[in-house]
Design a protein around this nucleic acid. Structure first.
Lengths: 206, 206
DNA sequence: GTGGTTCCTGGACACTCGTCAAGATTTTCG
DNA sequence: CGAAAATCTTGACGAGTGTCCAGGAACCAC
């Protein structure tokens, strides 16, 4: 047994199997994080959500921090490819506003646990420097997605945005987070308020 | 030793000493939560931030959940009495917008750890029902504070708000949270962007 | 002072945590 | 096939967790 540790193995030749397994385990970890939250997520719990035992995690990841960091990066790739499809094929402003609101409401309802995990991890990044860069990276790509919606809306109504992309994203993020919290608490009006807020912001920001 | 447990003792006659001690221990817990985050806050760590040993926590609180819940409620009272002073004595719209932005920036910079604790606990409330009601309560009072600023601004410029209090709060909350994350990450422009965003929102929402 | 109540300490408990390593198992390949 | 490499399981470890409790300390009326 020539002991090569996980760090070295990361950059070896056939990344097929090894990287696949990492992704598989990271998905189990993401599922655990989404259902239990960061504070209650343990390696044994993650392993139980996979088809392996807990020891294998240290075969594919150096420690828990590397696993979680890998999770955040993986989550990011899922994010951008998922949201890049929101509201791009609209031909008039009203339809775009409706589609954007519906898209946000749909992912909030369908992926509620995933979204609360994101806000949980982002809160963690305020305490733990390890996650800060990756979290900031995700925030940037989300900001770009929002800004694309805003600028498209502005073009369709023939005006210019009245704010910056950072401020617009902050508003939409606050709106989405609030709707998520209320939705998880059982508030039936949360989704409609998210749609209404989306329209309201688009009108206010161009 | 007539064993009376903490739950009974809560409603006894002289609540002076007993309630004072609860507040004192809750403050130590809040300090710990602010510096370590919810996931890393243990009862022994809390006790070390106080002048007592860890055993006393179960003399004044039934369990950890009751302690944290008490903390959230205590944090709320501090919140409302602290923020009710923001931007109330302004006579023209421009000064109000400036005072509001400065007030938010000042508390963000001065109480950054406390604010990140708030976002951490609010994230927790998405996973743990125990905190949901208290967290929602705090959100409501913060929403009222923001709404008071918006309506005052609207009165000073002689117009009406163009949005609801919930949507306005969501926007300001997103703005504040974004500024906090960037501030904690060492971004020197975070505070100025918060001020600029405050002005931008006030203009956009009336 | 003295006895009783209240308050606090410190240690023990059962458990979970991240980590690690020895060995069993599976896969790969000459 | 059979040896070598890669992969996975299992159990252990020390540290840390929430909780509980026996007993000491402090306080207070008498």
């Amino acid at each position: 047994m020539t002991s090569i540790d996980a760090a070295d193995r990361t950059g070896r030749r056939p990344p097929d199997k090894f990287e696949d397994r990492r992704r598989q385990l990271a998905d189990a970890a993401l599922q655990t994080l989404a259902s239990l939250g960061y504070a209650r997520t343990s390696l044994r719990e993650i392993a139980q959500n996979s088809e392996f035992s807990h020891g294998v995690l240290h075969y594919y990841f150096r420690d828990k921090v590397e696993l979680i960091t890998y999770c955040v990066q993986r989550f990011k790739t899922q994010c951008v490819e998922r949201y890049d499809a929101i509201a791009t094929h609209a031909t008039d402003a009203g339809a775009l506003a409706r589609d954007a609101g519906d898209g946000l409401a749909a992912t909030l309802e369908g992926d509620a646990e995933m979204h609360r995990m994101w806000y949980d991890l982002r809160s963690q990044s305020m305490f733990d420097e390890s996650f800060r860069l990756d979290v900031a990276d995700i925030d940037t790509s989300l900001e770009r997605m929002i800004w694309r919606i805003v600028t498209t809306y502005a073009r369709l109504v023939g005006r210019e945005p009245t704010t910056t992309s950072g401020i617009a994203y902050a508003a939409f993020d606050g709106l989405f987070q609030r709707a998520l919290i209320r939705h998880l608490a059982g508030d039936a009006e949360a989704l409609d308020d998210l749609r209404a807020g989306t329209r309201s912001f688009l009108e206010a920001f161009v």
